[in-house]
Structure formats: structure tokens, C-alpha cells
Design a binder for these strands. Structure first.
Lengths: 112, 112
DNA sequence: TGAATATGCACTGTTTATGGACCAATTCTT
DNA sequence: AAGAATTGGTCCATAAACAGTGCATATTCA
């Protein structure tokens, strides 16, 4: 079956997407870039920039992060160096974890 | 013209997307959730979860953030409350900025 | 105020993302 | 080691993302 016409997003993720879009718009304007300028730099259309700033959850995460980076927004509050280190750490942690998750059948509600 | 077959992402944004995916995978495994479980909770297919964890930039930002939220990853390092507040602040800042950007033509070349 | 430009929105055609089913390989548990 | 479940990949059908365009409105600046 195809892509669902409407996807139910949680409030938290909707807010997060919207916030990121607003931050991008703010940073763009502060840097005195037009939507068209940002679009060109990001290699996307102006229309997509508008959807990104509006917080459309359907936008690809690639273009969104690209736009964010261009206007100077640090994802994860991290510099490129820190980002790389975090990646190594997570990759490291992943090698120590099981690759396949088993049963766990009974109530996954952990948190003490 | 249609969607570009291949989009050129910067290293930074590619790393950021990949890192987020790895973090989601790590958190999922630590919580003992199967990819199928996470998919079901997020309302997406298992295949999409795989692409998300792999760091595919083409994935919608909505599903990615949704998955992240489900496994407990705080976007922006913020709790829901903080997220809401940040949103207000940015919205506030936006009202104080010009709505349309003028010339500024001359090189805003920032690093990042 | 007027001119120039940015923005918002809607429409169209093409490409892509996604769901679903299926299969093979991997991996965990007993 | 065996069995059961997870994972990873492919293939197909379909809805959606995206680029482009045009145009109306809004906005900045002279």
C-alpha cells in the first residue's frame, strides 16, 4: 500500500519540527538572506524553503538539516568536530549492544 | 523540472542525519524494542525505520523526529516544556525582525 | 507614494518516498 | 546446534515530495 494520506504526529515531534523551521527562518532573516538565496545555497527550490520554515513534517530531513547548517544552526548544539566525536561514541556503543532485539514480551515499561 | 536525482549534501548535515539515526537505533535497542515495534508505535513501516536508522537524508523529518521522540531522544536537548518556551521565544523574535529581506547582496559567507 | 523586490500560494509534471509482502541471512535464546 | 525471531534487502503499486512556473500580495526603500 502507498504512503498514508495523513500521518498522526505527536505534539512533541510536531513542535520540534516547527521550532526548527522557525529558527531557520529567524537565522536566515538575521543574516539578511532571501528565501531564494537560501534555496539556491541549499540546492533546493524556494518553495521547499517555505515549507521547511513553515515546519512541514513531510520535508526531507536532508534538505532541512542542510538549510539549518547554512544559516548557522548547530544541530545537537555541536560543532562539526563534536558531531564527529559523538558519532564515534554512538558507533562504539552500538558495537557493544546486541544487534537483534529479542522477545522482551512482557511489558517493556522500564523506567524503574 | 522534477526532483533532482541526487542532492549534494554538506558533510555536516550528512553527519547530523547519520548521527540522529544511530542515536535512535541505540536508544531503541537499549529499550529492547524491535524495529517492527518502533515502526508500529511511530505509525510507519519497518522499512522506513531501517532507512531512518541508516541515516537516509530522504526520509521525512516528521517520521524521523517521531521515532526519536518515541525512544526518548530529546531534540534540541529540551523537554517538551522547554521546547514550547523556545518556540515562543523564536516566534517573538520573528515579530521583531523584518518580514522581507532586502538586497544585502554582498557575501554573507559564514563558515559552519 | 511609487518602484522594485520578496513572499505566499496554487497548479502541473516528474521523480521519489513509503507501505506491504516476501525471502535470505543474521542473531539471540535454549 | 537448533529453532524462532529479527534484521536486511528486493520488488511492486501508489500517494507524496519536489522543481518550476506564474501571479497576487506584501514589504522595503528611495
Amino acid at each position: 500500500m502507498p504512503k498514508p494520506a495523513l500521518r498522526p504526529y505527536s505534539r512533541y515531534s510536531r513542535d520540534a519540527v516547527a521550532l526548527l523551521g522557525q529558527q531557520i527562518r529567524r537565522a536566515r532573516i538575521e543574516k539578511k538572506l532571501t528565501a531564494g538565496d537560501l534555496a539556491e545555497r541549499a540546492g533546493v527550490s524556494r518553495g521547499l524553503v517555505q515549507r521547511i520554515e513553515r515546519g512541514d513534517p513531510g520535508c526531507g530531513i536532508g534538505p532541512v538539516f542542510e538549510a539549518a547548517a547554512i544559516v548557522g544552526i548547530r544541530l545537537f548544539d555541536s560543532s562539526p568536530a563534536a558531531l564527529s566525536q559523538m558519532s564515534d561514541e554512538v558507533k562504539q556503543a552500538l558495537t557493544l549492544l546486541p544487534r537483534a532485539v529479542r522477545p522482551a514480551k512482557i511489558e517493556t515499561d522500564d523506567d524503574f
